[in-house]
Design a protein around this nucleic acid. Sequence first.
RNA 1: GGAGGGGUCGCAUAGCGGACUAGUGCGAUUGUCUUGAAAACAAUUGUGGCAGCAAUGUCACCGUGGGUUCGAAUCCCACCCCCUCCGCCA
Length: 412
Amino acid sequence: MLDIKFIRDNPELVQKKVEQKGYKGSIAQLIKVDGKRRDLIEKIDKLRSKRKEVADKRDLSEGKKIKEDLKQKEIQLEEVNLEYGKSLNELPNLPLDGVPVGDESQFEIIKTVGKIPKIDLPKDHLELGEILDVIDVERAAKVSGSRFGYLKNEAAILEFALVEYALATLTKEGFSPIIPPVLIKENITQQLGYWQGKGQGEYYRADDEDESGLYLIGTSEHSIVPMHKDEILENLPKRYVGFSSAFRREAGSYGKDTRGILRVHQFDKVEMIAFVKPEDDEKERKKMLELSEKLVASLGLPYQVKKLASGDISFPAAETIDIEIWIPSQNTYRETHSISTTTDFQARRLNIKFNLGVKKEFVHILNGTAFAIGRTIIAILENYQKKDGSVEIPKVLQKYTGFAKIKPKSTR
RNA sequence: GGAGGGGUCGCAUAGCGGACUAGUGCGAUUGUCUUGAAAACAAUUGUGGCAGCAAUGUCACCGUGGGUUCGAAUCCCACCCCCUCCGCCA
């Protein structure tokens, strides 16, 4: 949610910025509705004040008249409010200055880190997964359909190792570990802002026949951020490191990444969430990016850092930086991490504030990936593969896995 | 899932159609007194909308949403949440 006062004061700027995010509507129209709304509110307030007076005097006939008049105006206001709320709700967060303007092709590569390994005829993660007996998508298809997978044996242990490693690293940085619910109420999904626009169809609804259906979260952020709905937070910054499964319909991705477990309906993820004062937003963004990079770099994986273009940023976010790790079989970098600030956009919708002197101010809310487990395992398998299909385990993970290498099944 | 009890200003409670402009106690803040503190006394004490540069004014909010009434915390309807007991269950 954008601040209506800011919109009133800067209509052209807002129009320009929301268009950069792909919004098609008219700010001038919203301001017109806003004016109508304020006019009605003033009239209704006056009538209500009069109603009190008249009721005190037990003036039944005058009271009845006011009641009728009020009812009419209240109905009008309800209609205007509906339009007003809808228009305001449809406005995406404004991209920060410095976000490249344009569609998804207008990204900027900020830096490239690490040496791309020289592998002759690299096997992809699925082939490796089969050789090593650690990934099974065929049986998953039998049980759950396409875009699912079983992580088995060393890969399953690797998942726990990554989780432990991320938790150990991030708790040291002031993040409180948390395991959130994976089902959330519909009104919460609306307040988060992801179900707007292209977000629709991205998420699973748990029980279709029930009106008050619950939704499966697409990332732990979806149930961690709204924890503090309607609260006034003390002791900012407040940081969480969440672990949960994430569920995605991948509705718009037919035919894309159909092989293996790169793009699946369910995967586990360690995620950073931070609630900060507005002035600390930039600092926190840097911190999150540094931490994500540190986690990736310490695994010895080559990666690049990419600033997304305005048209590619999600509805509630004002800036998004992705980390993409090198995937040898595809001869390219693929997204594994995403660090975003939603500024005060989500905080406004969820009413999350902090004490600023005698006033209350909205917090800024940021989120960033620590590890998307599935894709990180893919990256490890592919980048650390040897000729015979065996895979080394990055040094920092070995104390968590208890093994240094995954050997082909046939050699065991 | 069944049966009971309950949701009121930070907390605890009162109120059950018009003086509720929500009372009282506790807490908190400020002031008086005091070398300082305690105690005592006094005052203040929420959120949001609208108008205004502001002081301020005004409206709304007693779990949520509807309804009845000239007038609703109070009456009616639906829903949500919490507690206790029973059942089921990792």
